[in-house]
């Protein structure tokens, strides 16, 4: 970040662009707020100064060292402004800059502004240009320490893994995250992402995954993410073919765990049974729907009523005896 030194980022040391001798040749362009401009008192002075000069250089198409410095100040004032980032990349390319220091700048900015999409996109472009993904897994892991569900960071990580084939240690990484927080939906999603793109969900893999997720459900039977993962990987097949799932259901049910996810999966199992000719399971399923709608999950009452109606119209009528 050497170019930025003379215009130190703290407000006291900052020299306005309008006061810099080496910017005398540029006529700043103020923001155009339409036909009735109002006095712009509430802009911070620095913000206005930087952006007035930025507009001027963009209009002029100037791509020089001093513009790199200016864009850095502009990014600091407003990192969400995507035009600045884009223009900075154009300057970097024009000047054929060494990307190493830019990667460092991007890393620092990502760590300071992990929720800013523009920074991540900038980072991705730099990795692409330098063909060097060596720090991305580390960098995203750093971001997850503070925010393990950061959507941009996950997207960046998936992009890196997919683009450079870095699959080999990812399941281990995901396992670590899930052990820290088994409700981390992003991590469950990543687990699916890795498996579907490597081994695929073969019979063997499904078996192992069922075992894996069941251990987490036992600890927290109301964990939506784990249940969604379980039912997600069993979709297309039959839940009742998986002995460990049936055992899990029995054991949680005998402890009277009031988990809508558990009960919803029970309904699925009963539905499979009815479809297989076991008529009496229909009533059991309908009873659970009633229990859910009236006691356990009244917020979603209408959903449970619908499920009950759907089952009866598909497999009914109920034996009234």
């Amino acid at each position: 970040m050497s170019e930025g030194d003379e215009s130190n980022s703290d407000e006291q040391g900052y020299v306005y662009y309008r006061d810099r001798p080496n910017w005398k040749d540029i006529e700043p362009i103020p923001q155009d707020d339409g036909p009735n401009p109002v006095v712009q008192i509430a802009y911070t002075d620095k913000f206005k100064d930087v952006y007035d000069y930025l507009r001027a250089v963009i209009r002029k198409g100037e791509k020089t060292e001093r513009v790199l410095e200016l864009t850095m100040d502009a990014i600091e004032c407003n990192p969400a402004n995507y035009t600045v980032w884009h223009y900075r990349r154009e300057v970097l390319q024009e000047l054929k800059k060494d990307l190493k220091s830019e990667l460092e700048f991007a890393e620092e900015t990502v760590l300071n502004e992990p929720k800013n999409y523009q920074v991540w996109y900038h980072r991705q472009k730099l990795v692409e240009w330098s063909n060097d993904p060596s720090r991305e897994l580390y960098l995203t892991a750093e971001v997850f320490k503070d925010d393990s569900k950061n959507y941009h960071a996950w997207q960046h990580r998936q992009w890196t893994i997919r683009t450079y084939g870095l699959w080999s240690n990812e399941l281990e990484f995901v396992d670590g995250l899930l052990k820290e927080d088994f409700r981390n939906n992003s991590a469950w999603n990543q687990r699916y992402f890795v498996i579907i793109n490597t081994t695929g969900y073969t019979e063997e893999v499904v078996k192992n995954e069922v075992k894996y997720v069941i251990d987490f459900i036992k600890v927290a039977p109301n964990n939506e993410s784990a249940w969604n993962y379980l039912t997600g990987i069993l979709k297309g097949g039959r839940i009742s073919d998986h002995e460990p799932v049936l055992k899990l259901i029995d054991s949680l049910r005998s402890q009277h765990v009031p988990s809508p996810f558990l009960l919803s999966t029970m309904i699925d199992v009963y539905e499979e049974e009815v479809a297989n000719g076991k008529k009496e399971s229909l009533e059991k399923a309908v009873k659970i729907c009633e229990e859910l709608g009236s006691k356990i999950d009244p917020v979603r009452k209408r959903y449970w009523e619908y499920t009950s109606r759907r089952l009866i119209s598909a497999y009914g009528p109920l034996d009234s005896t």
């Binding site: 923001q31 707020d33 339409g34 401009p37 109002v38 006095v39 712009q40 008192i41 509430a42 802009y43 911070t44 913000f47 407003n78 969400a80």
Partner: peptide, 8 residues
């Protein structure tokens, strides 16, 4: 239009 939020 002079409000900082507006400019940002």
């Amino acid at each position: 239009k002079d409000d900082l939020d507006y400019c940002m």
